[in-house]
Each structure stands twice: as C-alpha cells, then as structure tokens.
Design a protein around this nucleic acid. Structure first.
Lengths: 228, 228
DNA sequence: TCGCAAAATTAGGCTAACCTAAATAGCTTG
DNA sequence: CAAGCTATTTAGGTTAGCCTAATTTTGCGA
C-alpha cells in the first residue's frame, strides 16, 4: 500500500467516492461498482479505475467482481464528509434563510471547500446539533454517529400513531411536496388506512388525510409513539 | 473566438487567473506573464498556456511578449470573484468569530464553492457592507466598485494626522503585527518624524510611537483628516 | 450443466492544468 | 550596433479523472 494519503490531500472526487460508498453500504455490506457509478452519475469503468487507486491508498478494500468496502481510514474520511455536509445544511437553514429543499446542492459544494476550523465554528454557532434539517444524524467530530432506530412509514399498521423523525430525500421538488403536506421531522401522524395493493397507506397529518405510496413511504422514517 | 464560456462553467483555475490579472492591472495597464506566474505561484509556461486558452474564450486579450488585459467579460468575472472574496471575509469576521489575519485563506477556497444565492444572503445578513475587514471596497453585484482615493502612509509628511482606511496585506503574521500596534481601518495616526533614509516614518497611534518602514508604509493606505 | 445476460474489468483515448528544458524575442548597454 | 541578459513562448511530458468500446466474469434459468 502506497504511503497513506494525508487527510488534507484528498481530492474532491475522492471525497465524493468515499461518502457515496459509505452511504451505499449500511452495516458494512459491500457496495457494487454499478451502485457507486449510479449514485455519482459516472460510468462503471470510471468507478473501477478510481476504486483501484483508492484501494492502493488503503482507503478501501476491493475484491474484483465482488464489491468494495471502506477501511477504517476510509470510513473516517467518509464520516468527516457526512458531518460536514449535515452541519452545513443545518447552518444554512438556521442562519441564512435556506429551506430544507435547497440546502443539499449548496452543501454538496461547500463540504469540500470549508476548513475544519470553520466547520467547528458553525457547529458551535448551532449549539452542536445532533441532527440536520432532514432529521439525519450528524456524526461527531471524533467520527461517532448515533443512528436512531426508525421504521419506514410503509411498515406501519393501521391505527398506529407515529412521530416522523427523518426524511430520506434530497430532491428539492420532492422535499417541497413533503413539506407542503405538513411532513417535517417532529410531525405526528396516524395511519388511518392501508390498501391491499401497492403499499398505499393513508395517514392523517394535522387533521388532513393523505395517501402515501410505496416510494414515499420508504423515505419517511418514523418512531412509534402513544397516541396523545 | 470559441463560443463564450458560460459564467457557470469557469473552473477554479480560470477564476484564480482572472482575479489575479484584475488585481495586477490597475487602470488597465497590461499584466505580464511573470507577474501572473509569481502571483499564482505557477511557472511562466503554465501561464502562457492558460492565457492562450482564456484569450481564445474572449476573457482577455493577449499580445505575445507584451502582456495581457481583461476584456469586459473577463473583468466582470474577475469582479465577481473579488466581491465574493471580500464578502466572505466580512461574513467570517462578523458571524463566525474569525479575525482579519485568518480570513484570507478560508475565503480563497470558499469564493469558488459558494452559490450566487448564498453570497447575496451573506451580503444581506451583513447589511450590504461597502468594505471588507481590511478596508478593501466590495464590488456591487452589478460589478461597480468605488475605490476610495487613499495615500500610502509612506507619502505623508511630518505633522499630518490621517485616518487609516485600508491595509493592503494578506499574510496572517504581518496582519497580526499590524493589529498588535493598534493599526486597523479607522485608526487615527499622526506622523511625528521621518528619516532621510529608507523612507522610515514614525507615527503616533493611541499615544504610542512606532517606526514604520518602506514596505509597511506602502501597505497602509490613509486619508488626510484635520487634527481633532 | 450449458448458455446467456448482466455486471465488471481492461484497453485505449481525451481534456485541463500543471511541469522542465529548450528556443526565441526584446531590451539595454558597452 | 552587436552581444548578451531577461522575459516569454514553444516543445514535450505528467497526472487525475473522466469517457466509450471491447472483453471477461459471474450467476441464473432452461
């Protein structure tokens, strides 16, 4: 393995790859070349090439034709990017009048450009929050992260009342729709109906009924509560 | 000339070149290859190569062996970068606890990464300031810039009382020294002595005398005032 | 278990930006 | 006014990161 890349010297591309691989491999399941390519909007051969370089630098392990896993060093770098991204999102909403549908793209750029010092200043200004505006947990500076156990809305039974914790979506248009029907982290909702086809569930939010399809139901991560 | 580069598509490097050339050519005097190379810490051949590309894209005019001047389009792009840089500096000092000696490097990165929207939000949060923490004027969003007529301290005569308006310096260590002797934009100082060698002038700031050499004297830009 | 489709990799190329070494243009001065 | 120094440009090469086309591997279904 080539002399370790210092954390400073990771390029933008490398940072993007590491973050993508981290997000594509929950519980350390390997990520495939085509998943990574799709996530980053690149061709598969480009990914193969970069994966080779990154594994030579000790940031990940690649078993040809089998997939890719981050090493501890790679995971550390990935979590650093996730922390940056989510803190930036939180800062933009809190201090610069952004709404949750517009922060992703801006953060995607800034996460590569901001110094560690500035990130920590932003964290301080925010009071070291534990979640970002979508409810996603913000890894600590030491790399620890506490994922709250959530269940997708689509797995909830009729009659359950739940609190919405996370909204796993980054497309602005979809986020605007979600917000428009009152769904934000912290919202309380009750499952009032469920169709035997297509995982369609009906929920009541703020006294209004909405039908939620399969795709959306997987994006809305909830925690069960007692009805109030 | 090749189809105009859209403003969005300028690379980091191109933005740096344009800003450098702008800063190296007051009143439209052409900038030389070696000046640009020195300013950007690049080799002269690299500059020749980039200059050729930029002039093909209509951002500047190059007369071989004679130097380089920005076109209107190039100047617009350069002023956009200067605006970004200075607003970012102001924002970091005002809202994130930075001091004037530490903002330059951070802004140098951020100026390439921040969206136009975010820049304008920062400007609003600051109340659309006209100068940055070093007293340098911030170009307006439309590209207009109002340079206050200043005189270097080294040109002041004994007995004059002046107000310090701009400090043309970006090296952290030097800025810390300057601040440590009470010199900040807005400071009032009186020239109490002048040596017949080396342009050494003695000034009184807050009742304390300091000897200022030639280099520093050129960096401190002042406006004459009546003694109070 | 054979054959085929999908996934992955290899081969070969391109562009932006940088570099060093070599050649040339322009200025200055004896 | 020629010699020589300096500034600049040309020539040729490198690296990172991307691409398409061709090839190879894997796994699945008949």
């Amino acid at each position: 393995m080539t002399p370790a890349l210092q954390s400073e010297s990771l390029t933008r591309s490398v940072e993007d790859y590491l973050k993508a691989i981290y997000q594509l491999s929950p519980e350390g399941r390997p990520a495939s070349t085509s998943e990574i390519a799709h996530h980053l909007a690149l061709s598969a051969p480009s990914v193969t090439g970069m994966v080779k370089r990154l594994s030579e630098h000790g940031l990940l392990e690649h078993v040809p034709y089998r997939g890719v896993q981050l090493t501890d060093e790679g995971r550390r770098a990935a979590l650093r990017m996730v922390r940056r991204h989510r803190l930036i999102e939180a800062y933009l909403v809190e201090f610069l009048g952004y709404t949750w549908d517009t922060v992703h793209g801006e953060a995607e750029q800034l996460e590569h450009a901001v110094s560690d010092t500035m990130i920590e200043r932003m964290a301080d200004a925010l009071g070291n929050p534990s979640v970002d505006p979508h409810g996603d947990p913000i890894p600590a500076a030491d790399g620890s992260i506490h994922e709250l156990a959530c269940t997708p809305l689509s797995d909830m039974a009729v009659g359950e009342t739940v609190e919405l914790h996370r909204v796993h979506e980054s497309q602005p248009e979809r986020l605007r729709y979600i917000a428009s029907i009152g769904l934000k982290p912290g919202a309380r909702l009750t499952v009032t109906d469920r169709q035997p086809y297509d995982d369609l569930v009906t929920v009541e939010v703020d006294g209004v009924q909405h039908v939620i399809g399969r795709e959306l139901g997987h994006v809305l991560l909830c925690v069960r509560t007692e009805a109030r």
